[in-house]
Structures are given as C-alpha cells and as structure tokens.
Write a protein that binds this DNA or RNA. Structure first.
Length: 897
RNA sequence: GGAUCUUUAGCUCAGUUGGCUAGAGCGUACGAUUCACAUUCGUAAGGUCAGAGGUUCGAGCCCUCUAAGAUCCACCA
C-alpha cells in the first residue's frame, strides 16, 4: 500500500474509527487482577446537546489516558454515558413548548415525561457522533444513560436504605425557588451577582411611638411575624417583648431580641419574614415565630389582602411603597449594592420560599467522606483540591433532593390520600398507617397498600442524586460483586476525570454515595481540569462571541491536531487560554510524523530484502546508538509524566523526540547509512508513544506501513532498546560540533565587514569565493587537527553541517577556530574574513571568561566545597578545566590574527 | 469577611525532594530550499523569574510580608 503524499486527516479519520469499532477493540479485555485493569468513566454529556470545548478537553484527557493504559497491556475500560440532564433538557423542552404556544401546565406529569423522552431520543446520536469524531476509544456497548432502568433501580435501592436509616426526611424549609421554572434548586445551583437595589426605612408604629426598620423587600412585610433588635442595643432595650402594628394590616407583631440584628446596619431594627428569608427563618426557629407565606409558587402575592393578592412581587413592591407613603410611614430610601441570588439558567431572581421537600441528612455521609479523604484514599490532581473539598464537606448543609420538574427520576414516595385533608381536620381514617410510604411503582400515580390509598409525590430527584451513583452503576458494581470482595476489578475506578467546577456538585457526592453504598471510595484518583478560556484568557460565552467550537477545529485541522493542541500548555485545575495556534502546532506535528513515516517506508521499499535478517534489531553506528538512548529516555519520561497526569509535558516530550531528535538528527544521519530493521523498530516505537495523543494519524500510518500487523491501538508499548552508551555519547558530541559549525558559519556570513566585501565584488569577491563564506550551497571547508571523532566521521559531519569538505589540516591550522573545548576544528576562510572575525572572537573570549569567573568564585567559597554534594563539586571542577582549555585555544587563535 | 490558586520571553504556558548557562509552542528578525515535509530547513534576538525581606554554600522553587489578578465559600434587613 502506498502512502498518500499529503497529510489529509479528513480522508481517513472516520474510516479508522469505524475500523476500531468493527474490530471491537474498545471493549475491556479479560483481566487477571486489579493491577492489570484500568477503568474510567466519561462524565456523561447532555444527550440532546452538542459538545463544547470543555468536552473536547475532557475527551482528549480521558482518551489519552485510556489509550496509554491500553498500550501498556492493561484491560482498559472507558465507559461512555449520556445525561438526561434533567433541568437543562427541561429548559430546552419548555422553550419548545412555549414556541408552540403551550405550557407545561396543560399536561400531566406522565404526559410530559413521555414527550421529553421522545424529544431526547430524536436528538440523541448527535452527541455520540461528536464523541466519535474526537477519537474517544470508549466501549459503546456499555453506554449508560442516566435514566436507564439499572440506574433507576440502583437509585431507588439507595434511597430506600437511606429512608430506613432515617437519613431521609420531609421538611418544610426554605428552598431556592425559581418562580419562572417553578422548581427548587440546591444551594450550588444558584448564582449570585452584585446588584443595585434600594434600602427603604419603614415605620412600624405602636402606642406612643414607632420603630424604623430597614428593608430591601417591602412587599414581604405581609409575611412579617416579628421585628428583631440586638439585645445589646440600648436604643431598643425597653421595647423588647412589646408589640408593634404591622403597616397596611391589622396585625400586631412582637419585638424580639436577636443577635441577627446588627446595630451598625440601617436603623438596627429588622423585620422578620421567616417564610421568605434564610436568616429570618433561623430567627423564627429561635423565637418560635409563625411562618406566613405571602408569595405563591408562581411568584404572585398571596394572603396579603384583596388589594395585593395576585400581584407580582415587583408590582406589589410599588404598591406597598405608594401606600406606605400615603400612610406617612415611608421614612427614607437609599441606593445600595447587594448580592442577589439568580436562577443559573434564566437569571430570574431566586425567591427563597417555604416548601415541603425531601431532604437528606448529610452529616453521616460527609463525616465518612472526610474520614476517607483524610486517610488519603483518593489522590487529587491538583493536590490542593483535597483540602478544599474537606472544607466544603465540613460545612455541608442538608441536601434538598426534590425538584418540581417532570423530566427526571420520580421520587418513589407515596402519601396517603386522606392525609392531605387530614391536615385541615386533624383526623386520619387509620391512625396506624404512615403518612408516607416508600414504593418503587412510580409508573402509577396512585397505589393501594393495606386498604389505604396513596398518591405519588409529583417531584423528581435532583440529578446529582442519581449521578452520584455513576461509578457504581457504570461499572455494574453490584453484579460484579457477586459475594466476593474483589469481584469487580473495575470498581473503584482508577481515576475520575472531570471539571474543577463540579468538584462540589458531583465529585463530593460521588465520594459520599460511593462510600455509603459500597463501603469504598469510588475512585483512586481525581484529575480536575480547569476552564478552557479564549486566546486572551477570557471566559468563553455566547454573548461575548468568543466561543470556539471543537468540531470546527476538528474539521479544519483533524481530530489529532485538536487533541494535541488542547492538551498543550494545560495543567490540572487551572483555567487556561486556548487558541487555534496550538492546534496548528499539533497539525504540524502530525504532518511531520506522516512524512517521516513515508520516508522510512521509502527506504524500506528500496532496500533489497535479502540483506536484512528479519526482526534482527541492532545498532551499527553512533547515530543509531544515540537514537536508541533518546527513545529509551523519552519513553520512561512519558511513563512518569502519564503516571503523574502531566499531559502537556508528555505531549512536549514526544513532540521533541519526534521532531528535534528523530527527524532532525537520526533520520538525517540515516540518509548516509540505512539500518532498515532499526528504522522500522524505532518508527514503531515513536508511533506508539504518540498514539495516545494522536490516535488517528498513528493508526493510519501503522496500517499503511508495509511490515506492521494488526492495529496500533492494541499494540504493545515499546520496550527497551539496547545500545552502546559510549557510542551514543559520541554522537551527542558530534551534534555539538555540527551545531557549533552551523552557528559559526552563520555568524561569519553576518559579519558587517564580510557583508560589505560580498557587496563590493571584484577582488574581494574572488577572495571570499575561495573560502565560500557566503554559506550558500557548497559551503565552507572544515579542517580538523587532533580530533579523532571528527576524523572518523568526516562524511557525516560534512552532510549534517552542509559543508563543502571535512579535511585534516595536516598540522597547518588556518582559518577560524571553533569555540569547542574538546575539539580542534577550524573553518577554512580567507585571511580578511578571519581578521573581520577578530571582534566577535574577542567578545566570545570575554563571555567565556565571565562564565569561568563565576565557576571559580563558586570554588573559592570553602562552604560550597564543604557542603555541596561531592559529585556537584567535581562537576564544577571539570567545567573549570574545560573552560580554561577553551579560553586558551581561543586566545591562541586571537594572537594569530 | 474566609479560603484556594495565579504572577517566569511579545503571547500562551512548562520548570517534579533547592544545584551548572531558566525551557517549549506560537510570534519576531536574518538566511536557505528540485524531490519525506514551506504544514519545511538553518541561525539569532528576546527573561533583574510581580516587589521587598529572610533561610541556605546555593532560591524561579522554601519561609514572611506587600501588590495585582482569578476562582470558590459565607454575609449583606
């Protein structure tokens, strides 16, 4: 098979992926023990969405890890997922309903669920295609959808156990309520922003006086059940325990003493609305105050009297202010800035609202999690996140898991029908039957147990409640367990890779739930990636118009280029910039390996096969020894970097091996003498090392090469190359010589005097041509004195440095001496050029002199000689010797001019 | 208010128990080029490692303080 001459990723990527899928290479192999298995789950992308740049990073990281471990011979299992994304999807669907002029309130819960299910099924597939385009080597047959039957079963099982353990309770508490979406949110789902608002002073009167309270929310005064003052506040001490009249109403409310009132703030007196403010709720608990709801689920006023009921909070605020003014009770207003909670999806101001919800008592879960974290059972990347997580868990409040959205897993709780009326009559038909029962028949809206009828709670679980089971359900922990302790080699996961932004929402909950359900932490390591910012370090957002679409980059440069580009310059937990440049650099590397492979294939094709012993890899010259040394050391470096999740550095290591070492020096040296078997073996090795990061191009090359078999995806990670270390080191020295020759040649051609002579032409030109200093084709002549390394490798040096010739000076040194301590080498240039070089030489001598001084100063310090490691001191001593030799040679040279 | 992180070349970032002359990619300048690759090759310029102290034979790295920025948590009647 012949290589296409140009690197065109679009030509082969989808075909290669299809080939992998057809061969079934994504599935885990059979495993013998835990150490031979590697498991990782994909944070499930939204089933009906498109992938964004964050998914691109996620997959690049996770798939590189997976492929690396697969090459290392482990049974790698990368488990894909799809998220029903409860609220996210719901928002999209509700918008679609609105577009049709309908609302969710036209349908029952079950009807809505069915509709969204169909909607998601229609949209699904897109996301999976994109995950494939990014090259994810995940086991598709194991894809888990967050509403799959086994997920629901597992979630119900956990919930039942929690219910029996007394960790689930029904509470009337304040929840973060979005009046637009009409659902409650967890604390972490709420976004705060600094908003401009106003602080109004309102007079609450009593016989013979008034007390002024400050508030930003006058409309909630109908829900006030007290006024609080600080017990230490001398101004109000005498009023504590007395009553004031609530403005615009006939009610009287008490004045209570509570630390919550800050004498420094406003007037020092604060109205208490336990049903609509978190702090006031706490104050209410302390003073046993009634809770009066004045805002209903739709965000309208309720129970405030006919003039106000039905108004929106904003309308009501205006009216209340107007009425207070009329009544002469409004005493002042001032503008303030305060942080206000918003719905993270629609921006609507969150209304803290009193609701009956299911809560999970998290104390025990958090305590256990902290215990395991403190025992270092999970390693974090970056390490600092462990303590951040512990701090969070220490202050964790009970978890509201009820969501008033039909699209999700139904909460398996049923309430006896008669209890609904019983609240008003205080009578139950059968006093022994519990008010709430657990039952998994959530497909029914009404059930009968023991002659008592129950109706299903309409609410669904917070999606984090189900997704906290992710490692458990994806690895099928239960069936794998089958009684034996070490029955499932894939649980705990080797690593959990996800965004640092969901450390609390997801990682924390997986840890708590994993420990609760299995007794073990759900993963051994956590790698958190930061946000991908735009090229200027700004957050990407639609409104800023700086969103980068990963699929566009894949189409333009190839999947491999995208992966290499997004991994570059990135480290754990940091928000870092990303630009197309890095993808271009990735594409260039792919192009490099493509052409390198074509060249090697060309050499193999041209070599008569009978001269090669099949598979016999040995080194025959120092370039070959050197490349083996470099491959070995790059390989162990990459192993170390992958072990420590330093992806960007691993990419840099392989980039440098391929480009700066393999192509620039080894392949160049192989243009003189071929070692076909070694060329084959070394190319295979670098392809394998690149494969985790650039799977498509490496697989395509692998399958195009005439001698390779099977697929690179499940090839064996390269082993150790044998080489002669002295010979390898000699090649390294030769690289130093060639670099110095090139550098000096460039310096000569740039000398102002030489440039002038070149320009003048005539006699000057003739003289210069004799030494060919213009560094054009043909080049200069390198003369060696007593230098066996260069003498025995004269042709190689000539080719690598593009010289006209490399010859012995026959004891007659002339031209410019190279600034190399251990070599006696001269560039043969005419006398006027040597003279012109004198100044540069002086500078060079001074520079080396400065380096020598620094080294000498160090050795003069007795403390250094005494305290620094002996090896280091010895090294310094050698360096001084070398510099001395060099400076002496250069000075001799200078004297000759 | 509390916590965590960041500050290194023009830009984006590496720099792993402290050790020689601080690296990469991109960008810049000069030069090259008929076959592996212009998605190339060669050479070079560019850094008082945010600032100030301290520990040490030795600090980009450890300690203290300061400044700037980011993120998270809490509070804001």
């Amino acid at each position: 098979m012949k290589f296409a001459s140009a690197y065109e990723p679009g030509e082969f990527e989808s075909e290669i992926y299809a080939g992998w899928e057809a061969a079934g290479v994504f599935a885990p192999r059979a495993v013998v023990d835990d150490s031979k298995s590697f498991s990782i789950v994909m944070p499930p992308p939204n089933a009906n969405g498109n992938l964004h740049i964050g998914h691109g990073l996620t997959i690049a990281l996770e798939d590189s890890l997976t492929r690396y471990h697969r090459l290392k011979g482990e049974s790698a299992w990368y488990i894909p997922g799809a998220d029903h994304a409860g609220f996210e999807t719901w928002v999209v669907y509700e918008r679609a309903l609105e577009a049709k002029g309908e609302t969710r309130f036209n349908y029952s819960r079950d009807e809505l669920y069915a509709q969204v299910w169909d909607f998601v099924q229609e949209q699904r597939g897109n996301m999976e295609l994109q995950v494939r385009a990014l090259g994810a080597s995940c086991s598709w047959k194991d894809l888990t959808f967050t509403l799959d039957e086994n997920v629901v079963r597992r979630v119900y099982k956990t919930f039942e156990r929690m219910w029996k353990d007394g960790m689930v309770y029904r509470g009337e508490k304040l929840v973060n309520y979005c009046p637009k979406h009409q659902t409650a949110f967890a604390d972490i789902e709420v976004e705060y922003s600094e908003d401009k608002g106003k602080l109004w002073d309102i007079a609450y009167q009593y016989d013979g006086g008034e007390i002024i309270v400050s508030t930003t929310r006058p409309e909630t005064l109908f829900g006030d059940t007290a006024v609080a003052v600080n017990p230490e506040d001398a101004r109000y001490k005498d009023l504590i325990g007395s009553f004031v009249k609530l403005p615009l109403t006939d009610r009287e409310i008490p004045i209570v003493a509570d630390e919550h009132a800050d004498p420094e703030y406003g007037t020092g007196a604060v109205k208490i609305t336990p049903a609509h403010d978190y702090d006031d709720f706490e104050v209410g608990l302390r003073h046993d105050l009634p809770r009066v709801r004045v805002i209903d689920d739709a965000g309208k006023m309720v129970g405030c009297g006919p003039e106000y009921d039905g108004l929106s909070t904003e309308e009501c605020r205006k009216k209340v202010l107007k009425d207070l003014k009329t009544a002469g009770l409004l005493r002042g207003e001032k503008a303030i800035t305060h942080s206000v909670a918003h719905c993270y999806k629609c921006g609507t101001v969150i209304e803290p609202t009193l609701k009956e919800q299911w809560f999970i008592d998290v104390k025990r879960l958090a305590r256990e999690a902290i215990k395991h974290l403190e025992r270092d059972e999970i390693k974090f990347h970056p390490a600092s996140k462990k303590q951040v997580l512990i701090n969070y868990l220490e202050g964790l409040k009970d978890w509201n898991i009820s969501r008033q959205i039909p699209w999700g897993i139904a909460i398996p709780m049923f309430r006896r029908i008669d209890s609904l009326e019983a609240h008003s009559t205080n009578e139950l038909a059968d006093a022994d039957a519990p008010e709430w029962i657990f039952d998994t028949r959530t497909n029914l809206s009404e059930i009968e147990v023991g002659g008592v009828r129950y109706v299903r709670d309409e609410d669904t679980f917070d999606t984090w409640f189900s997704s906290s089971h992710w490692p458990i359900v994806c690895t099928d922990w239960e069936s794998g367990q089958s009684g034996a302790k070490d029955g499932n080699p894939y649980y705990p996961l080797n690593v959990m890779e996800t965004g640092a932004d969901i450390l609390f929402a997801w990682v924390a909950r997986m840890i708590m739930m994993g420990i609760y359900v299995t007794g073990e932490v759900p993963f051994r390591e956590v790698y958190l990636h930061g946000l991908v910012l735009d090229a200027h370090g700004q957050k990407m957002s639609k409104s800023k118009g700086n969103v980068i679409n990963p699929m566009e980059l894949v189409a333009k440069y190839g999947s491999d280029a995208f992966r290499l580009g997004i991994l570059r310059g990135r480290s754990a937990g940091m928000n870092q910039a990303f630009s197309e440049n890095s993808v271009v650099a990735g594409r260039n590397l792919c192009n490099k390996i493509w052409n390198l492979s074509r060249l090697v294939q060309g050499i193999v094709d041209d070599s008569p096969s009978e001269t090669e012993v099949e598979g016999w890899v040995t080194t025959e010259n120092m370039g070959e020894d050197w490349v083996c040394r470099e491959i070995n050391s790059a390989r162990s470096l990459i192993e170390k970097q992958m072990q420590e999740y330093r992806f960007a550095e691993a990419v840099e290591t392989i980039h440098s091996l391929i480009w700066d070492k393999y192509a620039d020096w080894f392949i160049e040296s192989q243009k003189l003498y071929h070692n076909v078997n070694l060329l084959k073996a070394t190319l295979e090795a670098i392809l394998k090392m690149l494969h985790p990061f650039a799977p498509f191009v490496t697989e395509t090359i692998w399958q195009n090469l005439s001698w390779t078999e099977g697929m690179i995806i499940n090839a064996e990670w390269p082993g150790e190359f044998e080489f002669d270390p002295i010979s390898a080191e000699n090649f390294a020295k030769l690289i130093g010589v060639v670099s110095e020759v090139r550098s000096t040649m460039t310096a000569i051609s740039k000398l102002p005097k030489v440039e002038k002579m070149l320009k003048r032409g005539g006699e000057d030109k003739k003289i210069l041509d004799a030494g060919d200093v213009s560094a054009e084709k043909g080049g200069m002549v390198l003369l060696y004195g007593d230098d066996s390394l260069v003498a025995t490798n004269d042709i190689l040096v000539k080719n690598l440095a593009k010289l006209a010739a490399v010859e012995s000076c026959e004891g007659q040194p002339r031209g410019i001496r190279l600034a190399l301590a251990n070599h006696e080498l001269y560039l043969d240039v005419p006398a006027p050029v040597v003279a012109a070089y004198a100044e540069a030489l002086d500078e060079r001598i001074l520079a080396v002199g400065r380096e020598l001084d620094a080294l000498n100063a160090r050795m003069m310090n007795p403390n250094y000689v005494d305290k620094a490691p002996a090896a280091l001191v010895e090294e310094t001593r050698r360096a001084i010797e070398e510099k001395n030799r060099l400076i002496e040679g250069l000075k001799n040279e200078r004297n000759l001019i």
